[in-house]
């Protein structure tokens, strides 16, 4: 109930004055693609039940590069897994294009941090083709054509027939990204995809991801614990506080890109986020 009420507030009908000027397309682009309302997530250990996030609400719009940023223990990965459908919410709702998102599905493809997300028994091409066939999105011929297209986009055409164990970490993540993009999901979910890479490769991958976003155009929900990565990759950042994860702030970061790394504004934004995330530890007070 509360979720649908919240949705109505987001819909253009809430602003009847300007409604007439809008075309249907504009109206559609105004509604959130992914809407999370009052989401509480819990997970169970053998001894206790742990509350990972508490009443989190965010809206991700079409074309967003939305970043979930927070220290470890803030439930950001759990939140992403809930959006992916691997975890049932304890409370609250997740809507994708107005429909409740329930269970894992190929409309929300995840790129994980771990390299073992690629089945080692499939070559690069087979890895990209696999989900297209498994989800019965395409027939083999079309799937192979589309796979070749996206493998080319991530620059791995030379390695199409190679098995994952022969690839470097960065290349494996590129395959995972190509695989996810080939599915043409409604939203692409990335769970610290570059955290296991070395610093130079990570920088290159961030650059390539932004280039892909310019080129292909997708909606991204990106989890990271790096303030710098959040500012670079995202256009909007939700800051989560730890134990349990709650939204501390939402910040715009569309102004920053790789060129602004050293500049003063970037440093200020970074310091601001740092203060927001860690003020409780420094001052010792509660909000």
């Amino acid at each position: 109930m509360s979720a649908s009420a919240a949705l109505r507030i987001q819909s253009p009908a809430a602003w009847p004055v300007r409604e007439k000027e809008r075309t249907a397309a504009e109206a559609a682009s105004l509604a959130a693609l992914l809407s999370i309302r009052g989401l509480t997530l819990e997970y169970r250990t053998p001894e206790r039940v742990v509350r990972a996030t508490h009443r989190v609400s965010i809206d991700v719009f079409r074309g967003d590069r939305f970043v979930l940023l927070g220290p470890s223990g803030c439930g950001k990965s759990t939140l992403l897994k809930a959006v992916a459908g691997f975890i049932e919410p304890t409370e609250g709702a997740i809507h994708l294009e107005g429909r409740p998102a329930r269970g894992p599905g190929p409309d929300r493809v995840v790129v994980f941090q771990e390299f073992d997300q690629l089945p080692p028994w499939k070559t690069v091409t087979e890895n990209v083709v696999f989900p297209l066939l498994a989800s019965r999105t395409l027939k083999r011929r079309e799937a192979e054509e589309r796979a070749a297209h996206y493998i080319d986009k991530v620059g791995l055409s030379q390695f199409a027939k190679v098995y994952p164990h022969e690839l470097s970490g960065g290349m494996k993540q590129r395959v995972a990204i190509a695989r996810a993009l080939a599915m043409q999901p409604r939203i692409l979910l990335m769970d610290e995809p570059f955290a296991a890479l070395d610093a130079l490769t990570r920088r290159k991958m961030q650059e390539e991801l932004l280039a892909l976003w310019e080129d292909v155009g997708f909606t991204l929900l990106f989890v990271t614990h790096s303030i710098e990565e959040a500012l670079l990759v995202g256009n909007r950042i939700a800051l989560l506080s730890p134990h349990p994860g709650r939204i501390r702030a939402e910040i715009n970061s569309h102004a920053w890109d790789l060129g602004s790394l050293g500049c003063a504004g970037f440093q200020t934004a970074s310091a601001r986020i740092h203060a927001l995330l860690f003020e409780q530890e420094h001052t010792g007070t509660v909000q």
Binding site: A84, P106, V109, V110, E114, D116, P131
Partner: peptide, 18 residues
């Protein structure tokens, strides 16, 4: 079998025998 691989499989809608 690693969790990530399991999740990847379920992500594509694989269930049961498949």
């Amino acid at each position: 079998v690693p969790d990530t691989l399991r999740m990847a499989g379920r992500n594509y809608g694989l269930k049961g025998f498949r």
